[in-house]
């Protein structure tokens, strides 16, 4: 910021506005895509109790996405609301992490994916609560409680699957191996996000790594599961380069709104 008078959020530069918009949409896309994935379990979960639990987790995430999209729409100031952003963007405009778009697989894969994501997002929102952007701090204060429960729920299941039967252990181990290459993206930041972190608006993702590591190690140790080796990591989700799984998911999620624009109920 060059101006010495209004040097904070009062008069954001064009660059920082678009960086904030991009950051909000990325976070919102993560939450919405994972929330939609979890909603696909509706009526299919192994237990009635878990069916409801998965829907609860989905609704937490979709609620977070709504707050983030709504704010993004205001920041962008082109008249797009949360629904426009969720339902009228194509696959390549989606900026979610590749991790969250991965298919549900079996129950172990869904719980492993949830743990890997929530173990990051809980400390992330914890840190975001002190954002210089008051609106972001408010959203984080709501989300942090929800993500704490997501960590707890996913962790308890991963522990029981890992330390369960031979088959449940094998499935949990396979799911971790499969998903591990998608965890590198959690810590990636582009120049815009780095600039926002420098202004204490966004969170430095690298600083979340110790907390993420601690949770993952604690849970996997108790689950008698081996932590997969860090190796070549997948990337591209933030730039709109997605796996083959996102397109079909969005098609299903968006079809109603696209077929009946501005329908109300």
């Amino acid at each position: 910021m060059k101006s010495g008078i209004c040097e904070t959020v009062l008069a954001p530069s064009k660059d920082s506005t678009s960086a904030l918009f991009a950051g909000l949409v990325g976070l919102a896309d993560d939450a919405l895509v994972l929330g939609h994935r979890l909603s696909e379990w509706s009526n299919l979960a192994p237990l009635l109790e878990e069916d409801i639990a998965l829907s609860n987790l989905a609704l937490d995430l979709i609620g977070q996405a709504r707050l983030l999209y709504a704010y993004a729409g205001e920041i962008e100031d082109k008249g797009r609301d949360e629904d426009d952003l969720a339902y009228l963007r194509d696959e390549h405009a989606y900026a979610n992490l590749l991790l969250v778009e991965q298919p549900n697989g079996d129950f172990a894969a869904t719980m492993a994916r949830q743990l890997l994501y929530a173990a990051f997002m809980h400390p992330y929102y914890q840190a975001l609560q002190t954002s210089a952007d008051a609106r972001l701090a408010e959203i984080a204060a709501k989300a942090v409680k929800e993500m704490a429960y997501h960590v707890r729920h996913a962790a308890e299941w991963v522990i029981r699957l890992g330390d369960g039967t031979e088959e449940s252990h094998a499935r949990a181990a396979a799911a971790l191996e499969e998903l591990w290459p998608y965890t590198g993206e959690l810590f990636e930041m582009d120049a815009g996000e780095q600039a926002l972190a420098g202004q204490q608006i966004a969170v430095d993702r690298a600083a979340i790594r110790p907390a993420w590591n601690a949770t993952i190690t604690r849970v996997l140790t108790e689950a008698t599961l081996k932590r997969p080796a860090d190796r070549w990591m997948q990337t591209g989700g933030r730039a709109g380069r997605h796996s083959e799984h996102l397109g079909p998911m969005l098609a299903e999620m968006q079809v109603l709104r696209r077929a009946h624009p501005d329908a109300t109920w």
Partner: peptide, 20 residues
């Protein structure tokens, strides 16, 4: 009532089913 493998999971299931 809820079905759950143990007390910890029962508490989570109870939270998810009865306190929504």
């Amino acid at each position: 009532s809820v079905h759950a493998p143990d007390a910890t999971m029962a508490l989570q299931a109870a939270r998810d089913v009865y306190t929504r």
